[in-house]
Design a protein around this nucleic acid. Structure first.
Lengths: 238, 238
DNA sequence: ACAAAAGTGTTGAATCTACACCCATGC
DNA sequence: GCATGGGTGTAGATTCAACACTTTTGT
């Protein structure tokens, strides 16, 4: 594997931290490995980059292979590279880590080379990182932290919602991903005052109980001014 | 170069956006290429990752090779990967981009395989991106934007300063990197109120003119709460 | 004394927090 | 009517922007 050149010839993979909200929980998609190494352990979905394939294209391909969903409104974003020389026992394999976020995906799909795919609650897998193969615990932690921070400064939260959503659903994204309560009344105004965060559709949705909520769509803005700071959010309940 | 495997064997480089403040300007270090391809054009310092070398180690090695300065108090941080299949005419070469920030470096040093090294004012090189080889204009732009954003939410500004610095010097980092004036009086208090941003040394420095300024050292904090927002900074002059 | 840069005080505007209260629907 | 979630008003605390003013040095 290591040649006599001054530089390495190596293989490149993409690994995905696919996040969603399911059953009111913050969850990630993991695959149980069917082959050595780390057979039987859990791992992030991913795979090798093809010879003439762009990195983002490789990530998008893996994403649709693993989730069984075509080119939809996914948020997909590269966030780090992991390249420790010994991170893969098969040789030098460098991986590009991607953060993928999608609205509530129905049910996990078993990939081609994987024996099993499952949604894991984030808290659960973070509590037992030894379940994860390679350095995927590190990658996962960084991907989770990335998403939590992005909620503060960007409009990323809308990526967890369906095309049309209520302000209450958007608020639940913050509450579930951060794990803290957020005051619904102040949240409403904060979202409305931030130009381009959400766009009204003039439609309403009537839920099981309570007053029907107005429906919104994602706006043009990508950054939030002022930011939605975790440390300052109030935690009142009424 | 492209084998019949389903995945690519490829080469990996690190490229560095080395930023500093020189002569009151925001500058980056560029190298004039001595070899094909792109001979004679300017490029970011960088080079191939060695077979058993960690990515961060490769970046640190290139940094000290190009600047001639040993393991000092550099800020060094991976910020993106560029892997378009055709980005390098020599074959598939993926590069990991690093942001390096250092206090005022004295004078450029010609590297081993480079014919010339020079500090460029950021504004100047951004205005003529066609001077740059490969996709280095994209990498540079992203590195600059990264630094500008990090000033808002992190204590990165201290990386532009020497070990001991005055609040005025720290303020000049913001002014020069962002290209906007910052009110000295409000800035002082804002820095002081953010716990862990700077630590007093109980020493003073007396400049050419004016009252001597207290000297500070970088603190423990890495993130700024509340952030130092560009869009909100006042632009008064007194 | 004067220029220059450091640093403090202060005031009106904007924002945030916490909560009272009203609105619209299903049962 | 009543429970439930959506949404508005508002008062006090906090923070911000703008700028007057004081402090400490070199010349």
């Amino acid at each position: 594997m290591t040649s006599k050149r001054p530089h390495a010839l190596l293989r490149l993979t993409v690994d995905l931290v696919i996040q969603t909200l399911r059953d009111g929980q913050f969850q990630v998609l993991l695959i149980r490995r069917g082959n050595e190494p780390y057979r039987g352990q859990w791992a992030l979905p991913g795979g090798f980059v093809r010879p003439d394939e762009d990195l983002d294209a490789a990530a998008a391909r893996e994403l649709s292979e693993e989730t069984g969903i075509g080119p939809r409104t996914f948020h997909l974003e590269q966030f780090a590279v992991f390249g420790a020389p010994d991170r893969d026992p098969r040789g030098r394999v460098v991986t590009v880590a991607y953060l993928a976020i999608a609205p509530n995906l129905p049910t996990p799909v078993a990939g081609s080379d994987a024996s099993q795919a499952a949604w894991w609650p984030v808290d659960k897998i973070l509590a037992q990182p030894e379940e994860l193969a390679f350095d995927h615990a590190d990658i996962l932690r960084m991907g989770i932290e990335r998403a939590r921070r992005q909620l503060e400064y960007t409009t990323l939260a809308t990526a967890f919602c369906a095309e049309e959503f209520t302000i209450g659903e958007l608020r639940r994204v913050y509450e579930v991903v951060w794990g803290i309560p957020v005051d619904p009344r102040n949240f409403n105004r904060k979202v409305m005052r931030t130009a381009g965060f959400v766009v009204p559709t003039n439609r309403k949705r009537t839920a099981e109980a309570g007053r029907p909520a107005a429906l919104y769509r994602k706006g043009d803005a990508t950054t939030l001014y002022p930011p939605m700071l975790r440390s300052r959010l109030n935690q009142a309940s009424g």
